[in-house]
Amino acid sequence: MSIADTVQPRFQSNVYSYENIEETLPKHTKRLIKDADRRNVQIIHGQGELLDEFSRLVELTESRKGVALRDKEYFKTLLENYPEGSVIFLATCNVYQLDKEAKEKKVQIEKEIDATPENAKKKLHRLEDQLQSVNKDINEYKKIFDEFGQEDKEIAIAGILSIQYGNTCEMLYAGMDERFKKFMPQYKEYVENFKWAFEKGCSWSNMGGVEGTLDDGLTKFKDNFNPTINEFIGEFDIPIYPFMYRLTQKAYKILKSKHM
Rank of each mutant, 00 (worst) to 15 (best):
residue 250 K to L: 15
residue 97 Q to I: 15
residue 259 H to T: 12
residue 116 T to S: 08
residue 110 E to F: 08
residue 199 E to F: 00
residue 13 S to N: 06
residue 172 L to R: 13
residue 243 F to Q: 15
residue 151 E to I: 12
residue 114 D to R: 12
residue 102 A to S: 13
residue 253 K to E: 15
residue 184 M to S: 12
residue 150 Q to E: 13
residue 36 A to C: 02
residue 52 D to W: 03
residue 205 S to T: 09
residue 251 A to N: 13
residue 32 L to F: 03
residue 100 K to P: 08
residue 158 A to N: 06
residue 132 Q to W: 01
residue 251 A to D: 12
residue 15 V to H: 07
residue 36 A to T: 02
residue 201 G to E: 08
residue 66 G to A: 03
residue 123 K to H: 10
residue 88 I to S: 10
residue 80 E to D: 14
residue 118 E to D: 09
residue 192 E to D: 08
residue 226 N to L: 05
residue 93 C to K: 06
residue 212 G to F: 03
residue 128 E to Q: 13
residue 61 T to H: 05
residue 24 T to R: 07
residue 236 F to Q: 09
residue 33 I to Y: 00
residue 5 D to L: 11
residue 188 K to V: 00
residue 84 E to G: 09
residue 137 D to P: 00
residue 125 H to Y: 10
residue 1 M to L: 11
residue 78 L to M: 14
residue 156 A to N: 05
residue 91 A to L: 07
residue 212 G to C: 03
residue 109 I to G: 09
residue 91 A to N: 06
residue 106 K to S: 12
residue 52 D to Q: 07
residue 89 F to T: 03
residue 125 H to S: 14
residue 120 A to S: 07
residue 169 C to V: 10
residue 200 K to D: 03
residue 85 G to Q: 09
residue 85 G to R: 07
residue 123 K to F: 03
residue 54 F to R: 05
residue 125 H to R: 15
residue 136 K to N: 09
residue 28 H to W: 00
residue 225 F to L: 05
residue 150 Q to P: 06
residue 15 V to F: 04
residue 246 R to P: 05
residue 204 W to E: 10
residue 21 I to N: 01
residue 139 N to H: 05
residue 105 K to I: 06
residue 78 L to Y: 10
residue 161 L to N: 04
residue 58 V to S: 02
residue 255 L to V: 12
residue 80 E to T: 11
residue 243 F to Y: 15
residue 157 I to T: 05
residue 23 E to S: 09
residue 67 V to S: 06
residue 119 N to K: 10
residue 153 K to P: 06
residue 50 L to N: 09
residue 107 V to M: 14
residue 81 N to D: 05
residue 256 K to M: 09
residue 190 Y to I: 08
residue 50 L to H: 11
residue 203 S to L: 14
residue 210 V to Q: 03
residue 2 S to A: 11
residue 253 K to S: 12
residue 92 T to L: 14
residue 187 Y to L: 05
residue 162 S to K: 02
residue 254 I to G: 08
residue 145 F to T: 04
residue 44 I to N: 02
residue 124 L to A: 05
residue 24 T to Y: 01
residue 21 I to H: 01
residue 121 K to Q: 12
residue 94 N to E: 12
residue 93 C to H: 09
residue 157 I to Q: 01
residue 230 N to C: 04
residue 192 E to N: 08
residue 4 A to F: 12
residue 217 G to L: 01
residue 77 T to S: 14
residue 111 K to H: 13
residue 146 D to F: 04
residue 227 P to I: 01
residue 13 S to R: 00
residue 183 F to N: 10
residue 179 R to W: 07
residue 16 Y to I: 02
residue 228 T to R: 11
residue 48 G to F: 14
residue 159 G to Q: 08
residue 241 Y to A: 15
residue 94 N to C: 14
residue 244 M to H: 13
residue 126 R to W: 03
residue 125 H to L: 13
residue 243 F to K: 15
residue 171 M to V: 10
residue 183 F to Y: 11
residue 44 I to D: 08
residue 150 Q to V: 01
residue 155 I to N: 12
residue 11 F to E: 00
residue 202 C to D: 01
residue 128 E to K: 15
residue 17 S to E: 06
residue 177 D to S: 14
residue 239 P to I: 14
residue 222 K to G: 03
residue 33 I to A: 09
residue 203 S to V: 05
residue 161 L to T: 05
residue 99 D to M: 11
